[in-house]
Amino acid sequence: MDRPAPRPRTRAPHADHHHGLGHGTATDERALLQALVLIGGFLVAEVVLGVLAHSLALLADAGHMLTDAGALVGAVAAIRLARRPAGGPWTYGLQRAEILSAAANGIALVVAAALVVESAISRLLHPAVRVEGATVVGVAAAGVLVNLAATALLTKADRGSLNVEGAFRHMVADLAAFLATLLAGVLILVAHVELADTAASLLVVALMVRTGWDLLRRSGRILLQAAPAEVALAEVHQHLLALPGVVAVHDLHAWSLTSGLPILTAHVVVDDRVLQSRAGALLDDLQECLADHFDVEHSTFQIEPASHLDHERAVHP
């Protein structure tokens, strides 16, 4: 039987795609570095003024900004590592560096939050320190402006990367924290409510824990190789099984190498006659199905004749 003429492809072969490879662009790196300069310079000033004003809220904000700076440094480092070509034992390159960076930032946020809680409890038990409300208001107002500028810079970067998105969310959380600190400073100046400073620091803690937990949850899914949330394996199985000539699909696995780069592998059992007549076209169909319906462009299939199924040592769903 003559092999049918190959169908025109609507998408380029996988080898020609660079979808979601985790390679940060020069624009991403430039935006991150500019935000880092802003955050780093303000961080030093806030620590000094926070100590002089005896403000726990300002020091809590500084702790949060320190993790912001760490997030930005990690993001830049991860982008540069991800650009290194694959080679030697690093067959995928170092693209997962951004996930390690995101996880480290999440841990840093939770640890910093615990330290601020300890200080807040001590302040509540011994509220003898007088907070300089005017300094708190001035520094917090400046912090709002700095974070607005840093956030605006990061909107120019690709937030599809967990690296960049993590840094962006740090900025947004810090902006909210400075707004809370600004309100606390106003209350101290107008109503002499000294505990407003401690209350604001606890609000900052809540924001830090929320952001840190989210980063740990999302990076943990990737590090533990869970199936990407956007790739429903039951639907993938149904789509592949519906292709002409496919008899069964087993050993279906999906995970993310890094944010934006899902990978899928599967054993596909096909009719023996299909395997002999149009194996290449079937492989095209399988890859196009994943790319078109699930945006998965890095896939590997083991195509097996139906007669081979009984020889599989272990077949998994």
Results as ranks from 00 to 15, higher is better:
residue 142 A to V: 11
residue 142 A to L: 14
residue 142 A to M: 11
residue 143 G to A: 08
residue 143 G to K: 04
residue 144 V to W: 01
residue 144 V to K: 04
residue 144 V to A: 01
residue 145 L to M: 13
residue 145 L to Y: 09
residue 146 V to E: 08
residue 147 N to I: 04
residue 147 N to H: 11
residue 147 N to M: 14
residue 147 N to Q: 15
residue 147 N to A: 09
residue 150 A to V: 10
residue 150 A to I: 08
residue 150 A to K: 05
residue 151 T to S: 15
residue 151 T to L: 15
residue 152 A to G: 14
residue 154 L to I: 00
residue 154 L to Y: 03
residue 154 L to P: 00
residue 155 T to Q: 14
residue 155 T to K: 15
residue 156 K to A: 15
residue 156 K to P: 11
residue 157 A to L: 07
residue 158 D to V: 08
residue 158 D to L: 06
residue 159 R to P: 00
residue 160 G to N: 15
residue 163 N to D: 09
residue 163 N to K: 05
residue 163 N to P: 05
residue 164 V to H: 00
residue 164 V to E: 00
residue 166 G to M: 09
residue 167 A to G: 04
residue 167 A to H: 09
residue 167 A to E: 06
residue 168 F to W: 14
residue 169 R to E: 07
residue 169 R to T: 00
residue 171 M to R: 15
residue 174 D to I: 02
residue 174 D to T: 00
residue 175 L to A: 00
residue 176 A to R: 05
residue 177 A to C: 11
residue 177 A to F: 05
residue 177 A to E: 07
residue 177 A to V: 06
residue 178 F to M: 01
residue 178 F to E: 03
residue 179 L to K: 07
residue 180 A to W: 01
residue 180 A to Q: 03
residue 180 A to E: 03
residue 180 A to L: 06
residue 182 L to F: 04
residue 182 L to C: 03
residue 182 L to I: 01
residue 183 L to C: 13
residue 183 L to H: 09
residue 184 A to D: 03
residue 187 L to W: 09
residue 187 L to D: 05
residue 188 I to G: 07
residue 188 I to R: 02
residue 188 I to C: 08
residue 188 I to H: 03
residue 188 I to K: 03
residue 189 L to F: 01
residue 190 V to Y: 02
residue 190 V to A: 07
residue 190 V to R: 09
residue 190 V to T: 10
residue 190 V to L: 09
residue 192 H to P: 11
residue 193 V to I: 14
residue 193 V to W: 08
residue 194 E to F: 11
residue 195 L to W: 12
residue 196 A to D: 08
residue 196 A to F: 07
residue 197 D to H: 03
residue 197 D to M: 01
residue 197 D to I: 01
residue 198 T to L: 05
residue 198 T to C: 08
residue 198 T to S: 06
residue 199 A to D: 02
residue 200 A to C: 05
residue 200 A to V: 06
residue 201 S to A: 14
residue 201 S to V: 02
residue 202 L to N: 00
residue 202 L to H: 00
residue 204 V to I: 14
residue 205 V to T: 03
residue 205 V to G: 04
residue 206 A to P: 03
residue 206 A to W: 06
residue 207 L to W: 12
residue 208 M to N: 09
residue 210 R to W: 11
residue 210 R to L: 06
residue 211 T to Q: 05
residue 211 T to W: 02
residue 213 W to V: 14
residue 213 W to Q: 07
residue 213 W to P: 03
residue 215 L to N: 13
residue 216 L to K: 04
residue 217 R to A: 15
residue 217 R to T: 12
residue 217 R to H: 13
residue 219 S to R: 07
residue 220 G to C: 11
residue 221 R to E: 14
residue 224 L to P: 11
residue 225 Q to H: 12
residue 225 Q to N: 12
residue 226 A to Y: 15
residue 226 A to K: 15
residue 226 A to P: 13
